[in-house]
Nucleic acid binder design. Structure first.
Length: 155
DNA sequence: GCCAACGTTGGC
DNA sequence: GCCAACGTTGGC
Protein backbone atom coordinates (compact mmCIF):
# COMPACT_ATOMS: atom_id res chain seq x y z
CA UNK A 1 0.00 0.00 0.00
CA UNK A 2 1.24 3.47 -0.84
CA UNK A 3 0.68 6.97 0.43
CA UNK A 4 -0.01 10.10 -1.58
CA UNK A 5 -0.94 13.74 -1.31
CA UNK A 6 -3.68 15.17 -3.51
CA UNK A 7 -3.83 18.91 -3.94
CA UNK A 8 -6.99 20.84 -4.51
CA UNK A 9 -7.50 24.56 -4.59
CA UNK A 10 -9.70 25.40 -1.66
CA UNK A 11 -11.81 27.80 -3.71
CA UNK A 12 -12.18 25.22 -6.46
CA UNK A 13 -12.97 21.97 -4.66
CA UNK A 14 -12.67 22.11 -0.87
CA UNK A 15 -12.80 19.04 1.36
CA UNK A 16 -16.34 20.03 2.34
CA UNK A 17 -17.40 19.53 -1.25
CA UNK A 18 -16.14 15.97 -1.11
CA UNK A 19 -17.88 15.49 2.24
CA UNK A 20 -21.12 16.58 0.60
CA UNK A 21 -20.86 14.08 -2.28
CA UNK A 22 -23.10 11.04 -2.28
CA UNK A 23 -21.28 8.38 -0.29
CA UNK A 24 -18.50 10.95 0.18
CA UNK A 25 -17.06 9.59 -3.06
CA UNK A 26 -15.86 11.44 -6.11
CA UNK A 27 -13.80 11.17 -9.29
CA UNK A 28 -10.47 12.90 -8.92
CA UNK A 29 -10.68 14.31 -12.42
CA UNK A 30 -9.20 17.24 -14.28
CA UNK A 31 -5.52 16.45 -13.73
CA UNK A 32 -3.70 17.66 -16.84
CA UNK A 33 -0.07 17.18 -16.04
CA UNK A 34 1.89 14.23 -17.38
CA UNK A 35 3.85 13.48 -14.25
CA UNK A 36 0.69 13.43 -12.15
CA UNK A 37 -1.08 11.46 -14.89
CA UNK A 38 1.57 8.76 -14.76
CA UNK A 39 1.03 8.37 -11.04
CA UNK A 40 -2.74 8.19 -11.44
CA UNK A 41 -2.49 5.70 -14.29
CA UNK A 42 0.31 3.45 -13.09
CA UNK A 43 1.03 3.79 -9.42
CA UNK A 44 -2.03 4.71 -7.40
CA UNK A 45 -4.04 1.66 -6.46
CA UNK A 46 -7.28 0.87 -4.76
CA UNK A 47 -6.70 0.81 -1.02
CA UNK A 48 -3.98 3.46 -1.07
CA UNK A 49 -4.42 6.48 1.17
CA UNK A 50 -3.87 10.13 0.36
CA UNK A 51 -3.81 13.38 2.23
CA UNK A 52 -6.32 15.94 1.02
CA UNK A 53 -4.37 19.17 0.74
CA UNK A 54 -5.81 22.62 0.24
CA UNK A 55 -3.65 24.85 -1.88
CA UNK A 56 -4.24 28.59 -1.87
CA UNK A 57 -6.24 28.07 1.31
CA UNK A 58 -6.81 29.86 4.58
CA UNK A 59 -4.55 28.44 5.70
CA UNK A 60 -3.08 26.24 3.04
CA UNK A 61 -2.38 22.75 4.34
CA UNK A 62 -3.57 19.20 4.89
CA UNK A 63 -7.24 18.93 5.82
CA UNK A 64 -8.02 15.25 5.79
CA UNK A 65 -7.55 11.79 4.37
CA UNK A 66 -9.07 10.06 1.39
CA UNK A 67 -8.96 6.43 0.40
CA UNK A 68 -8.50 5.38 -3.19
CA UNK A 69 -11.56 3.28 -4.01
CA UNK A 70 -10.86 2.81 -7.72
CA UNK A 71 -7.50 2.61 -9.46
CA UNK A 72 -6.63 4.73 -12.50
CA UNK A 73 -8.94 4.79 -15.50
CA UNK A 74 -9.51 7.26 -18.36
CA UNK A 75 -10.72 10.70 -17.32
CA UNK A 76 -13.72 11.02 -19.61
CA UNK A 77 -14.23 14.66 -18.64
CA UNK A 78 -11.42 15.43 -21.10
CA UNK A 79 -13.81 14.45 -23.90
CA UNK A 80 -16.44 16.92 -22.80
CA UNK A 81 -15.87 20.31 -24.47
CA UNK A 82 -17.89 21.96 -21.71
CA UNK A 83 -15.77 20.56 -18.91
CA UNK A 84 -13.18 22.54 -17.00
CA UNK A 85 -10.23 20.99 -18.82
CA UNK A 86 -11.24 19.60 -22.22
CA UNK A 87 -8.58 18.06 -24.46
CA UNK A 88 -9.51 17.15 -28.06
CA UNK A 89 -6.50 14.83 -28.28
CA UNK A 90 -8.00 12.60 -25.61
CA UNK A 91 -10.42 10.02 -27.04
CA UNK A 92 -12.10 6.90 -25.77
CA UNK A 93 -9.83 4.74 -27.95
CA UNK A 94 -6.72 6.70 -27.16
CA UNK A 95 -6.99 8.11 -23.67
CA UNK A 96 -4.36 10.54 -22.46
CA UNK A 97 -5.69 11.61 -19.08
CA UNK A 98 -6.53 9.45 -16.11
CA UNK A 99 -8.32 9.74 -12.81
CA UNK A 100 -8.99 7.67 -9.72
CA UNK A 101 -12.01 7.54 -7.45
CA UNK A 102 -11.62 8.63 -3.86
CA UNK A 103 -13.68 8.40 -0.73
CA UNK A 104 -13.38 10.76 2.20
CA UNK A 105 -12.06 8.81 5.13
CA UNK A 106 -11.38 11.51 7.63
CA UNK A 107 -11.70 15.24 7.87
CA UNK A 108 -9.39 16.90 10.35
CA UNK A 109 -10.95 19.27 12.87
CA UNK A 110 -8.61 21.92 11.61
CA UNK A 111 -6.24 22.27 8.72
CA UNK A 112 -2.66 21.26 9.40
CA UNK A 113 -0.95 24.38 8.10
CA UNK A 114 1.80 24.00 5.55
CA UNK A 115 3.86 26.27 7.74
CA UNK A 116 3.66 23.73 10.56
CA UNK A 117 4.62 20.91 8.23
CA UNK A 118 7.67 22.85 7.15
CA UNK A 119 8.68 23.37 10.78
CA UNK A 120 8.24 19.73 11.76
CA UNK A 121 11.38 17.59 12.03
CA UNK A 122 11.30 14.65 9.63
CA UNK A 123 9.22 16.42 7.01
CA UNK A 124 12.06 18.43 5.50
CA UNK A 125 12.13 16.27 2.42
CA UNK A 126 8.39 15.97 2.00
CA UNK A 127 7.53 17.12 -1.49
CA UNK A 128 4.81 19.55 -0.49
CA UNK A 129 7.33 21.31 1.74
CA UNK A 130 9.73 21.92 -1.11
CA UNK A 131 9.93 25.31 -2.69
CA UNK A 132 8.18 25.41 -6.04
CA UNK A 133 6.67 21.92 -5.76
CA UNK A 134 3.68 22.30 -8.03
CA UNK A 135 2.91 18.66 -8.72
CA UNK A 136 -0.75 18.15 -7.82
CA UNK A 137 -0.38 14.44 -7.08
CA UNK A 138 2.59 13.68 -4.88
CA UNK A 139 4.08 10.55 -3.34
CA UNK A 140 4.41 10.55 0.45
CA UNK A 141 6.93 8.39 2.30
CA UNK A 142 5.51 6.07 5.00
CA UNK A 143 7.59 7.78 7.68
CA UNK A 144 6.25 11.16 6.57
CA UNK A 145 2.72 9.83 6.70
CA UNK A 146 3.29 8.66 10.25
CA UNK A 147 4.65 12.02 11.37
CA UNK A 148 1.74 13.94 9.82
CA UNK A 149 -0.73 11.57 11.49
CA UNK A 150 0.92 12.34 14.83
CA UNK A 151 0.40 16.04 14.15
CA UNK A 152 -3.23 15.39 13.31
CA UNK A 153 -3.76 13.63 16.61
CA UNK A 154 -2.69 16.79 18.38
CA UNK A 155 -5.45 18.88 16.83
C1' DG B 1 -1.46 41.20 -6.09
C1' DC B 2 3.38 39.89 -6.59
C1' DC B 3 6.57 36.99 -8.35
C1' DA B 4 9.52 32.68 -8.30
C1' DA B 5 9.39 28.30 -10.13
C1' DC B 6 8.03 25.33 -13.23
C1' DG B 7 5.64 23.19 -17.49
C1' DT B 8 4.48 23.81 -22.22
C1' DT B 9 4.70 25.74 -26.73
C1' DG B 10 6.60 26.78 -30.97
C1' DG B 11 10.13 28.95 -34.03
C1' DC B 12 14.26 27.78 -35.83
C1' DG C 1 16.13 18.95 -30.42
C1' DC C 2 17.28 23.44 -28.41
C1' DC C 3 15.69 27.15 -25.89
C1' DA C 4 13.25 31.63 -25.43
C1' DA C 5 8.78 33.12 -24.61
C1' DC C 6 4.79 32.45 -22.53
C1' DG C 7 1.22 30.71 -19.25
C1' DT C 8 0.13 28.75 -14.83
C1' DT C 9 0.63 27.52 -10.12
C1' DG C 10 0.69 28.63 -5.59
C1' DG C 11 3.05 30.50 -1.42
C1' DC C 12 3.46 34.67 0.63
Amino acid sequence: MNYWLFKSEESCYPIDALAAEKGKRAHWDGVRNYQARNLLRDEIKKGDLAFFHHSSGKPTGITGIVEIVKSGYPDHTAEDPDSQHPDPKHTEDNPIWYMVDVKLKRRFKETLPLKLLKETPGLEKMMVCQRGARLSIQPVRPEEWKIVMKLAEGL
